[in-house]
């Protein structure tokens, strides 16, 4: 595209971001400040993720962008089209074909490989933000690995509700050292981060922070010995493809209380249906 550098950002900015990325990879889970640029989309729509993607994107990369697991929502479509225009890279909706995946709020159901990079869009990189208002103090707590406060939050949840009530952005310990916010992915996806073969990069545009989890790094969700971490999902099978081990979206289909549970990962669902799997509502659809 004329008038723009490859992948929109100028080379100096990309260098700056890559330097921050290298530092982030060297210290897994540590938040590295960077000079976040204004991007042609509003804060909260993935300005951090899009800058990280622009900095690591190469001409031969195949890009996939997902939003809440779906490839066809506004955010995903806009960012995918943005890079198709400014970088001219090949895009895809297939997880297994992609070399670079930018995501908002989900990790794909298909296991990622060593030759893939996943970029998370992060609204709030500081896991202690709701517990300790001072950023100077949270930085000190990270420096001293003083994370008792996070467990106080878990204790309070169990005392009040009988269980930990955090269902997304569930805090994790990375490499036994840094407490990290995994971005607002469902707690269901947390175990996928543990020893993941792919490189995981996190970009927070408004908060101007980058952090990373290198391949094959331990990522443990916080818990108590007698209240171990457990994933929560809707107790249903996907209505379209019948998968019973995936994260589901609840879709209201009529005004009489009708509900349809479908895979939140659209690519995974489409792949299963193409392979001949049919769910309870999928057959109905075919009959109609």
């Amino acid at each position: 595209m004329n008038g723009y550098n490859f992948a929109y950002l100028d080379e100096q900015t990309k260098r700056m971001i890559r330097r921050a990325l290298l530092k982030a990879v060297a210290i897994p889970g540590h938040q590295v400040p960077f000079g976040s640029r204004e991007m042609p989309l509003p804060y909260g729509w993935g300005t951090g993720g899009i800058q990280v993607t622009a900095s690591v994107l190469g001409q031969n990369d195949v890009l996939k962008v997902i939003d809440q697991g779906a490839d066809d929502t506004t955010n995903a479509v806009s960012i995918r089209r943005f890079f198709a225009r400014t970088a001219g890279v090949r895009t895809t909706t297939r997880t297994s074909e992609a070399t670079l995946i930018q995501t908002r709020h989900r990790i794909p159901e298909t296991a990622l490989r060593e030759d893939q990079i996943i970029v998370y869009q992060v609204p709030q990189p500081e896991p202690l933000s709701r517990l300790e208002p001072s950023r100077a103090e949270t930085r000190r707590m990270h420096a001293l690995a003083d994370y008792g406060l996070m467990h106080v939050k878990l204790y309070e949840d169990i005392a009040r509700f009988g269980q930990v009530s955090i269902s997304y952005d569930y805090p994790v310990m990375v490499n036994h050292r840094y407490l990290m916010a995994p971005s607002p992915i469902p707690a269901f996806d947390n175990p996928k981060m543990h020893m993941m073969p792919a490189l995981q990069l996190f970009g927070a545009g408004r908060e101007k922070r980058i952090y990373a989890v290198p391949p094959y790094t331990e990522v443990r969700s916080l818990d108590f010995d007698d209240h171990p971490f457990r994933t929560i999902r809707a107790p249903h099978a996907c209505g379209l493809c019948g998968a019973a081990d995936v994260y589901l979206d609840e879709v209201v289909v009529d005004d009489r209380g009708g509900r349809l549970y479908v895979c939140s990962d659209t690519d995974h669902c489409a792949g299963r249906r193409a392979a001949g799997h049919v769910g309870a509502d999928g057959m109905q659809e075919a009959a109609e």
Binding site: D146, G148, L149, V152, Y155, I158, A159, F224, D225, D226
Partner: peptide
Amino acid sequence: GGNVGERLMAQGARHY
């Protein structure tokens, strides 16, 4: 309870 338990948790107590 959380107030009393905080120092224990800061020291690494992980049994609710």
